[in-house]
Lab assay of single mutants.
Amino acid sequence: KELVLVLYDYQEKSPRELTVKKGDILTLLNSTNKDWWKIEVNGRQGFVPAAYLKKL
């Protein structure tokens, strides 16, 4: 499993997105899109802007 660090808080703006908090370490599911990465948070899957995340 690949992990990502959340660099900035992000509030979901659609049902396909997820809310994340700065400092969270989460599972990366897909990073093929350069702008939006798919991650998992508490069993939910969704997208967060790639600029808000850093691969560990």
Rank of each mutant, 00 (worst) to 15 (best):
F47N: 05
L28S: 02
P15C: 06
K1A: 11
E12R: 15
Y10F: 06
V41N: 13
D24F: 07
G43W: 05
E2Q: 11
K54Y: 08
I25V: 14
T27M: 11
V20K: 00
P15F: 11
K38H: 12
L26G: 14
T32Y: 11
S31K: 07
V6S: 02
E12F: 09
L29M: 10
N33V: 05
L7S: 02
D24W: 10
W36Y: 11
K38W: 15
Q45G: 12
I25F: 05
Q11S: 11
W37H: 02
L56E: 03
K21Y: 11
S14P: 09
T32V: 11
E17T: 08
K54P: 00
P49K: 04
Q45H: 15
K34E: 13
P49L: 03
K38N: 09
N30W: 07
V20S: 01
L53I: 04
T19M: 06
I39N: 02
T27I: 13
I25T: 07
G43P: 02
L18W: 04
K1C: 06
V48A: 05
K22W: 03
F47P: 01
D35Y: 15
V41E: 10
R16G: 14
W37R: 00
A51W: 15
L7N: 02
G43D: 08
Y52P: 01
S31E: 15
G23P: 01
N42D: 15
Q11V: 13
L29Y: 05
N42W: 06
L56A: 05
T27C: 07
D9G: 06
P49Y: 02
T19E: 05
K34D: 15
T32S: 12
Q11Y: 13
T19K: 07
K55T: 08
E40C: 07
G46S: 03
V41S: 13
T27K: 09
G43K: 08
E40K: 05
W37D: 00
K38Q: 12
I25Y: 04
Q45E: 14
S14W: 11
S31L: 04
Q45S: 11
V41G: 14
K34I: 11
E12P: 13
R44F: 13
T27N: 11
V41D: 14
G43V: 03
L3E: 09
Y52R: 04
D24C: 05
R16L: 13
V4N: 00
K21T: 11
T27S: 11
D9E: 05
E17S: 06
G46R: 03
V6Q: 01
K54Q: 10
Q45L: 10
I25Q: 05
T19L: 04
A50F: 02
K34P: 13
T19G: 06
P49T: 01
I25E: 03
G23A: 03
N33G: 11
D9N: 10
Y8A: 12
D9W: 02
L28H: 01
R44Y: 10
S31V: 08
N30C: 07
D9H: 05
K34Q: 12
L26Q: 05
L26W: 12
G23L: 02
K38V: 15
L56I: 15
L28A: 03
L56N: 03
E2T: 14
D24S: 15
D9C: 03
G46W: 04
G23Y: 04
L53C: 06
E17A: 07
D9M: 03
Y8K: 11
P15E: 13
Y10S: 01
V48C: 05
K13R: 13
G23Q: 02
